[in-house]
Design a protein around this nucleic acid. Structure first.
Lengths: 350, 350
DNA sequence: CAGTATGACGTTAACGTTACCGAAAACAAT
DNA sequence: ATTGTTTTCGGTAACGTTAACGTCATACTG
């Protein structure tokens, strides 16, 4: 009953060559006659050989160096989670010959991004995990890596094409739909604001997609007034003024959909000004967000699973490098709906 | 920079014994003097040795046979997902020397459970994954397995103690809280029914816990009338009558919380009788449930992640048997809140 | 004190794969 | 024919761990 295991040796025997030749065929690195190659391939097919991943990794006996190019969590705490996911993945996969080095850049400073990317390009890594938030600037590096056969995985921000090994992240449009439905479940008319906070909407395709998804949902609905607002917060006062204005402009404001992880700015404002009955939906389980989720000022958070993104990114690169497995070209992580009662399950777990 | 790898041989060398001795210490299978043991342990600590899991599994060179004792999906489609999770896990882990055999029993027939369990006990398996829905009947088998040093993992239904390797499932109480909050978000007063469908509440501790969680949430709230109803459905007519009665008894019925995966029974009834404005929250992404989720008759489903339960169960047994890793004694899977817009992410993925 | 258990340890062949090192064979240029 | 070059291929030592086996020494038995 336990299926007979097929080894390289068996293939070699059956096709009358040596294990070395079979190995060369398997990884088609040439130096093998067409004749032999065909024969070996036929036998592989016939016995339907499945490589033993353990032995493969062990025999390889190489430590693969992976570089992770991500924003510095000190400058935006959203990035704590991916960093942790990456760290945990490394720990778990170290036994499989993986080592990861994180290159942190300032998400508000293109220069710093380029500098770190150059660092990576200068040393030779076997794979790169990158959050390509600077579209134009990352391109030359992608070219370089591609030319050198170094696989790279995008995460969090999607770039179409340019041949990444994989993209890991969320479906922004769909997440806009989810947010809309959640609001729709408790608001039956009035004004709803889509708030982009601290991001230049021009450069942030994923925010536009969220907005698009949200609007799409509400196209079917009557009696709502959907408004977009771009807010910035360099100081609390500045932010507060913008909010005051918003409240004044839209008397029937019923709900706010925050497309970034900064919902807690608004929650803070609402609390301070004792404003109730405005539903609030945002993203990401930052400590401050959770706080307001628990005291009811934020109604729902959508988890983008940043921890999982980091974890899967490293995981996929490992599958590719160590085990030479195929990995999906795209992995959309679930759009977890988080309330106070189930939040703990989404905190730094996978 | 790439950390120096510590091998058993290094430990042996440094502590002046042989690799065999180190191996015996590592797996403390005795036959080692206290003296040597202490020394080896000290060196292990000092170099902080981390075993190479690949080499371990490869060297072991044993095919571990795991038995999965679960209800037959033909008799309750909830069990399709765990079966699939188990199958996928097996596929993924076959390369690591794992083979799984599923033993399906009739969830409504104790005899069939016993028969299958005996099957497992008769042949010798290296590990068992079991959904112990028949509390009393499973105990003797647990004793047996324990005596024979065969690890077993519970999933879906929790049994306190009896020394499983791990329990994998949901926190029922907490899931009651989640359900309550979801209903509370869209209902502000009136009567709310907790419906147990097709289950004997006496034997179903997890259903009682769900109810308990739900009630706990509503203890803080005023103006609600929380009612419990046990429903059965052998025929559609029988069920319909019970529902009619319920509607008649509670004119201000605003929401129903179904503690099992049978919310679609109620949705079906509501649709047929054109009853609107009763919020419905249930469990599990069965095809029929999804259907009503999409057309709005079911408002929320809570995903118990049955696929993941199966997957993790096998995964944990593998960690224990193959890699000899420590596994958590308890794994509570997330209480995923599912609406039409995010349901696809929870369908048979992990 | 011989004989036998018992316990403590070392040695070693595997596990399946990889990758390097040459040997052998085929071919090319004199 | 000889030498040189290239292509194809076999042999084999690793990779880190496991577990069966063998070898001692010591303790116990009568």
């Amino acid at each position: 009953m336990p299926k007979k295991i097929v080894r390289i040796k068996d293939i070699a025997l059956k096709s009358g060559v040596s294990t070395g030749t079979v190995d060369r065929v398997l990884h088609n690195r040439g130096r093998v006659s067409d004749d032999a190659k065909q024969k070996v391939l036929a036998v592989i097919e016939e016995l339907n050989y499945e490589p033993n991943l353990l032995a493969r990794a062990l025999g390889n006996n190489k430590v693969f160096a992976i570089a992770a190019l991500i924003p510095d969590a000190k400058l935006d705490s959203y990035w704590e989670a991916p960093a942790l996911g990456i760290k945990h993945a490394e720990k778990e996969l170290r036994g499989y010959g993986i080592s990861v080095e994180q290159f942190l850049f300032n998400p508000y400073d293109v220069k710093s991004f380029i500098k770190q990317a150059q660092q990576i390009a200068a040393n030779d890594f076997d794979g790169v995990l990158v959050s390509p938030i600077f579209y134009k600037e990352v391109l030359p590096f992608l070219e370089d890596w591609k030319k050198n056969g170094i696989p790279f995985v995008f995460f969090n921000t999607q770039i179409t094409d340019f041949g990444p090994l994989s993209y890991i992240g969320q479906d922004s449009f769909q997440s806009g739909l989810v947010a809309a439905k959640l609001i729709d479940n408790s608001v039956s008319d009035g004004c709803i604001v889509i708030a982009h906070i601290d991001e230049n909407i021009k450069n942030a395709a994923h925010l536009r997609e969220k907005e698009e998804g949200f609007r799409t949902f509400y196209k079917k609905r009557k009696g709502f007034n959907i408004v977009v607002s771009e807010l910035t917060r360099s100081t609390e006062e500045e932010f507060s003024e913008q909010m005051q204005q918003l409240i004044k402009d839209y008397k029937d404001l019923k709900a706010i959909y925050v497309t970034t992880s900064k919902a807690y700015y608004i929650a803070h404002f609402l609390q301070k000004n004792k404003i109730k009955d405005i539903k609030l939906v945002g993203y990401d389980l930052l400590e401050q967000n959770i706080k307001y989720l628990e005291n009811g000022l934020i109604n729902y958070l959508i988890n983008q699973n940043p921890y999982g993104q980091g974890y899967w990114g490293i995981s996929y690169l490992t599958d590719h490098l160590v085990f030479k497995k195929k990995v999906p070209a795209i992995k959309h992580l679930p759009l977890d709906i988080v309330i106070a009662e189930n939040s703990k399950y989404y905190l730094n777990k996978y």
